Simulated assay, not measured.
Amino acid sequence: MDNKQNNYISVSYQLYSISADGQKNLEEETQQGRPFQFISGFGVSLDAFEQKIVALEQGAKFDFTLQPSEAFGEYDAEAVHKVNRDIFSINGHFDHENIFEGAVITMMDADEKRFMARVAKIEEDGVTIDTNHPLAGSTLQFVGEVLENRPATNEEIQHMLNHLSGEGCGCGCDDCEGGCGHDHKHEDGCGCGHDHKHEGGCGCGHCH
C-alpha cells in the first residue's frame, strides 16, 4: 500500500521504552475494544510512527523501533528548572494535593501558551520541574496489529478537523482516557504513537 494522506487507521499495540542501558519497560497498551484510531496526514501521531503504519494492510502485524531522534528527542538537561513555590500556592497555602514529586502538571509560559511539566523535586526554596517529554532519550518499540486501514470518510475527516480546532479529541477513542494513541503534544499525557509531543499523549498513539 502506498503512503497516503487521509487514511483512517486503527491499530492495537504495546509500546515499550528502551533506555540507554538497555532496560525495557511497557509504557502503553491499547485495551480490548479501544484501539488507537487516527487519520493519516493530520500530524496527530509521531511522523515516524505514521510512516511505518500507513504502508501496512489491514491484518498486518508489526514490530519496529524508533530512535530518540524519531520520537521525542534526547533528554535535555536545560529543560529542568527550579521555580518559586509561591506559584503553586492557593490562598497562601502550598497546593500539596496537586503538586507532589512525580506529578505531571499543566503550566503556562509568558506568552500564555500551555505546556506540560513533571514535578521532579519539592524543596523549601523552590520546586524543580522537568519539561522534557517523559520518553525523551528513549528508544521506542511498537508491537501490534493493523485492525483497519482505508480511506477516511468525509465525516471522519470533519471530526478530525473539529478536534484540531479545539472541539474534541479527534483520536477516535471517544474520551481519550488511558491512551488514545495520540500526540496531544504534552497537554495531558504521554501516549506515544503520536507526535503526543506530549500534549496529552505520547505521540505513540495515546492520550495521557
Rank of each mutant, 00 (worst) to 15 (best):
A110E: 15
I39N: 12
E97I: 09
C192F: 05
A20W: 10
D175V: 06
L15Y: 07
T131W: 01
K24R: 10
E112I: 10
H81P: 12
T128Y: 04
I105Q: 07
E50Y: 04
G33I: 04
G144E: 00
K197M: 06
A120I: 02
D47E: 13
V104W: 11
K197N: 09
Y13H: 04
N154V: 03
D47L: 11
S69C: 08
G166P: 02
H182E: 06
H159V: 03
E177S: 12
Q14R: 09
A55K: 15
A48H: 11
M160V: 15
N98D: 04
D183K: 09
I105P: 10
E74K: 15
N25L: 12
E199N: 14
N132E: 07
D174L: 09
E177T: 05
D2V: 13
H194T: 15
G73L: 13
N91H: 13
Q14L: 03
G41D: 05
F36V: 10
P134I: 01
V119H: 04
G43K: 01
M160Q: 08
V83T: 06
K61M: 12
K185T: 15
H182F: 06
D95R: 09
I53Y: 05
K24G: 00
F72K: 01
Q31N: 10
S19I: 07
Q37N: 15
A117W: 12
C192K: 11
E155I: 05
F62D: 10
G137D: 06
G73Y: 09
R34W: 11
F72Q: 09
D188A: 13
C192P: 09
N132R: 03
K24H: 03
K61P: 08
C176P: 06
T106G: 12
A71C: 03
N149L: 00
G137W: 09
A79R: 14
I39T: 15
S10L: 01
I129M: 06
C192Y: 09
V143A: 03
E199W: 02
V119L: 12
H208L: 05
P151F: 00
G181Q: 08
E28H: 05
C192H: 10
M1T: 15
N84R: 11
I157C: 01
I129K: 11
H96L: 08
F36K: 06
Q51K: 15
F62H: 03
V11C: 07
S45T: 15
H133R: 00
D47V: 14
G43A: 10
A120S: 12
D130N: 11
G181K: 02
E123Q: 10
G126L: 01
A136C: 04
A71V: 14
S12W: 00
H198D: 13
P35D: 08
P68R: 13
L164P: 02
D188H: 07
C204Q: 07
M107S: 04
Y75I: 13
E123I: 04
I105M: 02
H96P: 02
A152V: 07
I122W: 01
R34I: 12
A117K: 11
E78K: 13
C176I: 01
S45Y: 07
E199V: 12
A20V: 04
C176W: 00
N162V: 05
E177F: 05
E57Q: 14
G170Y: 00
E70D: 14
C190D: 14
Y16K: 01
D175L: 00
G179F: 02
E148I: 01
L135F: 07
P68Q: 08
V104N: 12
L46N: 10
G43M: 02
V104I: 08
